[in-house]
Amino acid sequence: MSKIDKRNRLNEEPFDYQITKKGTVVIYYEDKQIKIIEDKEAESLISRIKEVEDNITALQLLLAKITGNFKRGNEKIGKNKRK
Rank of each mutant, 00 (worst) to 15 (best):
D5A: 08
R7Y: 03
E12R: 15
Q18N: 05
N8T: 05
N69F: 06
I19V: 15
I27S: 06
N74M: 11
Q18P: 00
Y17W: 04
E51L: 12
T57Y: 09
K40Q: 03
D54K: 15
A58L: 12
I46E: 11
K65P: 00
V26Y: 01
I46L: 12
L59H: 08
N55E: 06
I37V: 14
K6T: 04
A42M: 04
E75M: 03
E30I: 12
G68W: 09
F15C: 04
Y29C: 13
E12I: 11
N80L: 15
I66N: 05
Y28I: 09
A58Q: 13
G68Q: 09
T24R: 12
E53W: 13
R7Q: 07
G23A: 08
D54G: 11
I49F: 03
Y17V: 04
S44D: 12
N8H: 07
K32C: 11
L63S: 05
D5E: 05
I4E: 11
T20E: 00
E51D: 10
R72A: 05
S2Q: 07
E51S: 08
M1H: 08
E53C: 10
E30F: 05
D54M: 12
S44K: 15
G73M: 06
E13W: 03
Y29Q: 14
I77R: 09
R9I: 14
Y17H: 11
L61A: 13
G78R: 14
A64H: 08
I37Y: 01
R82M: 10
K83E: 01
E53T: 14
K65V: 02
G73V: 03
S44V: 09
F70Q: 14
I19H: 04
E43N: 15
L10I: 06
G23S: 07
I66K: 14
K71W: 09
K76D: 05
K50N: 11
